[in-house]
């Protein structure tokens, strides 16, 4: 049993997890995502940046079909996600939410073990073993019988990350994971994410933590008005010659 992806980024030869082409999502008369194409490879830490309302979160939520795309295609490891078993697919794509979305009626341990047990991925015993190992790793083992309401925001979000990790997913989607945290809680969550990225976990992160992106990202997608207008390494993104739109964005957030 292995809950930490050990596959290291292998540059151009790494397996393609997501191949997205011309993705569209429309809410009423507002086009949130307007023709996004991208590839995500195993081992990458892809950060999606952009101003509010640029469609970052909607794009991310389309990737595990929490939002049904209105156009375009998403292939996950070579399969069209809309033709595969959506539950099996989602079990391989973890998600961490802005508001944690822990299950308040379940203890920390039950929060983590519910999905692997009910989806038949792990037996109850295996799930508890895996959960306790992960809890020890993030230093929250003694909270295993606590309920979410008894935890701080930072603790909740780290439990939520463990909840996604225990499924041993191919990729985890992070939807603004620190936006709902008090400033003093942000650090613990970011440092866990950094550990995971350095451990080789594939992640797609929507965030406003620009400095963190600069430090951890292997690639940065910059979105505006529902489109990806820049797909580059952090060195180039934060480098000498940004486009005027990026320059404007960075001047506001840095």
């Amino acid at each position: 049993m292995n809950t930490t992806p050990t596959t290291k980024p292998e540059g151009e030869n790494a397996e393609t997890l997501f191949r997205i082409s011309d993705l569209k999502k429309v809410f009423g008369d507002h086009t949130a995502v307007n023709g996004v194409s991208a590839e995500i490879h195993r081992g990458e830490a892809v950060f999606v940046l952009g101003p509010s309302g640029s469609g970052k979160s909607t794009f991310l939520r389309c990737l595990n079909l929490l939002e049904m795309p209105d156009g375009g295609e998403i292939f996950f490891r070579g399969d069209d996600v809309r033709r595969t078993d959506v539950n099996a697919f989602r079990a391989r794509v973890g998600m961490v939410f802005q508001h944690f979305n822990l299950f308040p009626h379940l203890s920390v341990l039950d929060n983590i073990t519910l999905a692997p047990v009910k989806t038949g991925r792990l037996s109850k015993g295996e799930a508890i073993f895996a959960a306790e190992r992960l809890l020890k790793r993030i230093g929250l083992f003694e909270k295993r019988h606590a309920f979410p309401q008894q935890l701080s925001g930072g603790q909740k979000q780290r439990i939520a990350i463990v909840r996604a990790l225990v499924m041993n997913p191919d990729v985890i989607l992070f939807d603004e994971p620190t936006s709902a945290l008090d400033p003093e809680m942000v650090g613990e969550v970011l440092s866990l994410m950094k550990d995971l990225a350095q451990g080789g976990l594939t992640m797609i992160v929507v965030t406003h933590e620009i400095a963190f992106a600069r430090e951890v990202a292997s690639r940065i997608l910059f979105m505006d008005h529902g489109q990806v207008i820049s797909d580059s390494t952090p060195e180039r993104f934060f480098g000498e010659m940004p486009s005027p739109r990026i320059r404007e964005f960075l001047s506001k957030v840095l």
Partner: peptide, 10 residues
Amino acid sequence: QFEAGRSLGL
């Protein structure tokens, strides 16, 4: 809550 459940493959 619903999204969290579904996103875990339930």
